[in-house]
Amino acid sequence: MENNLLLQINNISVVYSDVIQILKAVSLDVKKGKIVSLLGSNGAGKTTTLKSISGLLKPENGKVTEGTINYEGHNIQNSAPEIVTRLGIIQVMEGRQPFKYLTVEENLRVGTATRWGKPYKKDLELVYHYFAPLVARKHSLAGYCSGGELQMLVMGRALMAQPRLLLLDEPSLGLAPLLVKEIFEIIKRVNQEQATTLMLVEQNANMALQIADFGYVMENGKIVLEGDAKDLIENPDVKEFYLGVAATGAIKTYKDVKSYKRRKRWL
């Protein structure tokens, strides 16, 4: 059991600018070769969790103040991003951040930064294999690509680094439903064919839970619910709040919702 754990977050708290506490005692496990999805509303602390893993808290003046993040025997809390990425953890940031003035192929080549000087041709081919639409845009500036192409681009860029753990922050943001479906299929394929472990932060809970093996639900900087993806998808609370299906079918009043929320917070 122990040795197929890739990442173990142990009771971490994250504080920004020494005053604003975002995460309160969050623990979660990621098993090798699985897809774990992290759900929750805006401001629940999902992105912060990802950033605390990838070391990107520091530029935003954030810090892991308590607890440990264990990745294959390394304690990586508060490590610099250049160290974490070299261990094989790559984060794809929210909102598609391409290098606007670089061409698509140059963007992909930035992904090789963790292993500078090694050949990258094979990886390029692999990325083009998964994200076929990118081939045609190879030499155009990333700034002129469409949203869907950009999402493929940033994911492909991360794949170039040959990650062992890929952190995806809202890959479906602002994309058409059909495209979302395509992207998620690719994610699933990457997971199966490349044996890449994935951690997925999503608002689109339905999609995320369909491809995930395990899921966590966050609220107010805490994990309030966890379980196998197929159990979560059936869970009445999740259904109601994230999948938009009322458990009983009856019209819920605002009062009921509030009392539920209050109850949930005590978890």
Binding site: T85, F99, A113
Partner: peptide
Amino acid sequence: DNQPAAMALG
């Protein structure tokens, strides 16, 4: 071009 994104890629 984009410092945080470059950082995230290592």
